[in-house]
Computed example of a mutant assay.
Amino acid sequence: MLVNAALRVMGRDGYTSLTIRSLAEELGVSHSALYTYVTAIDEIEDKAKRRLTDQLPRPQSASPAKLREELLAFLHAARVLILLHPGVLLSRVGSASSEIFRDISEQWFSALTPHAPDLKTVKLALTALMGTVLLIVEGERLLEAGTGEKGSRRSDKKRSDGAVTAKAVEPYLNDLIDLVLPGLAAGNKRGEADRRRSRK
């Protein structure tokens, strides 16, 4: 209940808006009564952010084809999470949120290393992929800001809800994976076709 209320406050008013007072208002109780259950707002904020980051897929497979699918699912989930809750992944270094994301990244580094020349390559590759996701999100935000609100030119089909734009960004992410992690192209039909063409 506290975590859900915290997510509502942070989603509506931003991450810096979460205080004992704002959480109490959301719950319809006095802030002094809330102190009975909450000693530090940071604990609630960390739990809320952890709940959101739990939506990010972790690597499960060892096969290149399956791992590639999982990596794409992770990138799409990260894009939607950053779009809807930017304060979760884009938080200051050293914060609980950044530590959670660092742990998730470490799991991806371990899973991807067998399919790359070395760990440094994997770290650079994942950084490039996440950087691309951030650019895509920023583009979506600018598009939404420029076409939303009064006199909206935006249709419901173009809304940034994650499901609609996933297909649009898939080719960019696939091409980048082929470029930075060619070891994952083994089960990818397009990757195989590209390699055959380059051999001729």
Results as ranks from 00 to 15, higher is better:
Gly187Cys: 03
Arg159Met: 05
Leu126Cys: 09
Gly162Gln: 04
Gly11Pro: 00
Glu43Phe: 04
Arg197Met: 13
Lys120Gln: 13
Glu192Phe: 06
Thr16Ala: 07
Gln55Trp: 10
Gly14Phe: 00
Lys157Tyr: 11
Leu7Tyr: 05
Asp13Gly: 01
Val180Ile: 08
Lys49Arg: 15
Leu134Met: 14
Ser98Gln: 14
Phe109Trp: 14
Pro59His: 09
Ser198Phe: 01
Glu138Tyr: 01
Ala116Asn: 06
Lys123Ser: 03
Ile20Asn: 07
Gly162Phe: 10
Leu67Cys: 02
Leu181Ser: 02
Leu23Ser: 07
Asp161Tyr: 03
His115Ser: 03
Thr127Lys: 11
Ile177Gly: 05
Gly139Thr: 06
Gly187Ala: 06
Gln60Gly: 02
Glu138Leu: 12
Val180Pro: 09
Asp118Met: 10
Pro117Leu: 12
Leu71His: 07
Asp156Ser: 13
Ser110Ala: 12
Arg68Ile: 02
Thr132Leu: 13
Gly191Leu: 08
Arg190Asn: 10
Tyr15Val: 06
Ile136Leu: 11
Val164Phe: 13
His85Gly: 01
Glu144Arg: 11
Ala65Gly: 03
Leu142Arg: 14
Val9Tyr: 06
Leu134Asp: 01
Asp103Ser: 12
Ala111Val: 09
Gly183Ile: 00
Thr121Phe: 08
Tyr172Cys: 14
Ser98Asn: 09
Arg21Gln: 13
Leu83Asp: 15
Leu179Thr: 15
Leu184Gly: 01
Lys200Phe: 05
Pro57Cys: 12
Ala163Arg: 13
Val180Asn: 10
Arg153Trp: 00
Gly131Asp: 12
Asp118Ile: 08
Ser155His: 05
Ala62Tyr: 08
Val180Asp: 01
His31Met: 09
Gly94His: 05
Lys47Leu: 15
Tyr15Phe: 14
Lys66Ala: 14
Glu106Leu: 13
Ser105Tyr: 14
Phe109Val: 13
Arg153Gln: 07
Lys150Tyr: 12
Glu140Ala: 11
Arg141Trp: 11
Lys120Asp: 10
Leu7Asn: 01
Met1Glu: 10
Leu90Pro: 01
Pro171Ile: 12
Gly187Trp: 11
Lys200Ala: 10
Glu26Arg: 13
Trp108Leu: 09
Ser152Gln: 11
Gly183Ser: 05
Leu143Ile: 07
Arg58Gly: 06
Arg197Lys: 15
Ser22His: 06
